[in-house]
Design a protein around this nucleic acid. Structure first.
Lengths: 332, 332
DNA sequence: CTGTTAGCGCTTTCAT
DNA sequence: ATGAAAGCGCTAACAG
């Protein structure tokens, strides 16, 4: 592998001149540029990113931590971030936190050890305190899908309360009054906000909230199924169920069918997130659109703007969910 | 940030001794180990991975290239690889090739430039020749989901022909004779193999292959929908359709329903890959299981064994699909 | 506009 | 078993 020394020798200029043209620094004569580029081509020279990082203290890498590398939600996030960063010549090191405190901590340490210039974090298990403390360290980072008051400008988040509200409102407007709710883990902020939104809609329509109709799931399909099973077996009265995400909604729909409930005739459903497969469920699932890609892109832009000093028009932290109306809700 | 010099000074031993205990080299006295570790703890020292890489010419990073970062198939692959590698203290740099020749080439170059110790590649657009040529370079790599005769020991692949055969056989055994086939892009080896398997099953059951019943899709949901629409509008006779992957099957099922075909009563379906959402379609989709995780894990193990000299029991290159029988096939 | 000179923080022979 | 010293390949003042 040719080094910069050989380029320098062949081009007949100094090391620094080579470095300058390689990094597009100004104040380099056209002539030396030409000479250097010729030498580079001739030698098939490729700079060593490692050596460059050691000397410059930059890696052009941003570290990403998401809960899982699979799953429609995280997949879209990753795609959105990677493509935006890649377009600016920055690279991503991706790792998984598995919604587990230790894993998330390890993941972050790993990314810091890899000398990432900045991080994009989707952390669920780590406490607000830990994150606020991390902010005092020297590694810049943003949070996605999470709101922490103290560092809110570095957070990108959805108005989950509004989403929960709009979802249930949709059910109410179709005449439903007995509405079950399959929530995410309520200790999680997003899950709780969606739930609060649900209750807000109920209140607005003067429908009394019935605690028995709440089932707390974990955002995974199986828990949706468990939820509907629980509700049915308890013989609880409901004509519709709002689910805190699409995975659970699909599980719940499956569970309902196991009890021969026809959808949406006997039971309506609404999901949340609008992941790609909702359109391919039967009936197609009405849900709340989560602008995942836009949020992913924005978080990447924050990095580009603040760390790499690129010109970015405007940073916007709050994202708004919108209703996707399909076929899983029956008017009664 | 403390450096190794400070550790050396505080511990009262030489640089090299510190380096030795840090890297678990043998021939270090218990005493110096203790002294060094104490100093490390006291200083909160963390080695710089960059400096280490520069000096040692290793990065402990393996580069992964997949077509997309989203999608159930790639997601599972990534998860499988990352967890296996991570467990051995190796790291992954992940990038997307978008099934495009230039993107894939760029991605590989990027990973090489990042000084990855080895690569795991899922490439679709790049030619066999390009890959064989790459093999002559100095970067070690394996291929997943692809078979190239010349480097077959470094390939991990599914017996797609068998899968295609078994899928259609399942339909035939349920009495179907008029079987439509929605294929992937037939220039792709895996798509073509599945299709060949389909025809083989037909032949074995003495059912004549009818070219009109073939629709060539692109593995994406929409093309499944387009396929079924085409078949129906042409008024072609069929009682079942075999799809080359689950995405297209879900699209096809949706399309069939748009024409008020009941599934599976009026039309049976079988998919391929057994991605997670097949279970949540209605009816649940019968499909061929693709041991994605196992393949991902195996490819990571190849790297661990051959690059990092870990003890790995056995490497196995060929993976076998198996039938997952659910509710989308009607006996006639 | 160009060249000289120090390192960046660590690993790795080679002696001892 | 330990230490000294020579880089790994590049960037970034600084001087000219």
């Amino acid at each position: 592998m040719a080094t910069i020394y050989e380029v320098s020798a062949l081009a007949g200029v100094s090391l620094s001149s080579v470095s300058r043209v390689l990094n597009n620094h100004e104040h380099v004569s056209e002539k030396t540029k030409l000479k250097v580029n010729a030498a580079v081509d001739k030698l098939g020279y490729r700079p060593s990113s490692i050596a460059r990082s050691l000397a410059s203290n930059r890696t052009d890498c941003v570290g990403i931590l998401v809960s899982e590398l699979h799953g429609p939600f995280y997949g879209d996030m990753l795609t959105g971030i990677e493509s935006e960063l890649r377009a600016s010549g920055k690279h991503t090191i991706i790792t998984a936190g598995h919604s587990d405190k230790k894993s998330e901590r390890d993941g972050i340490e790993f990314l810091i050890d890899r000398n990432c210039d900045a991080l994009i974090l989707l952390v669920e298990a780590l406490s607000d305190e830990y994150i606020i403390e991390l902010k005092k360290g020297k590694i810049p980072f943003v949070l996605i899908n999470r709101y922490i008051e103290e560092i809110k400008d570095d957070c990108f988040y959805l108005d989950n309360l509004l989403g929960g509200y709009l979802a249930t409102k949709q059910l109410l407007e179709h005449g439903h009054k007995d509405i079950a709710y399959i929530s995410g883990p309520l200790i999680k902020r997003d899950a709780n906000d969606r739930f609060i939104g649900h209750k807000k809609a109920l209140a607005e329509f003067n429908v009394e909230y019935n605690e028995a109709l709440l089932y707390q799931g974990d955002f995974l399909t199986q828990s949706g199924r468990d939820g509907i099973t629980h509700l049915i077996e308890k013989q609880l009265p409901f004509t519709a169920v709002a689910c805190a995400n699409d995975e659970m909604a699909s599980g719940a729909m499956k569970g309902a069918r196991d009890f021969d409930l026809s959808i949406p005739e006997e039971c309506s459903f609404i999901g949340f997130d609008n992941v790609f497969f909702t359109e391919y469920l039967y009936p197609q699932l009405s849900t709340m659109h989560y602008p995942t890609k836009a949020m992913a892109k924005m978080s990447a832009q924050w990095i580009l703007k603040n760390i790499y000093k690129k010109d970015i028009a405007e940073i916007n932290n709050l994202f708004i969910p919108s209703l996707i109306s399909r076929d899983s809700i029956q008017r009664i």
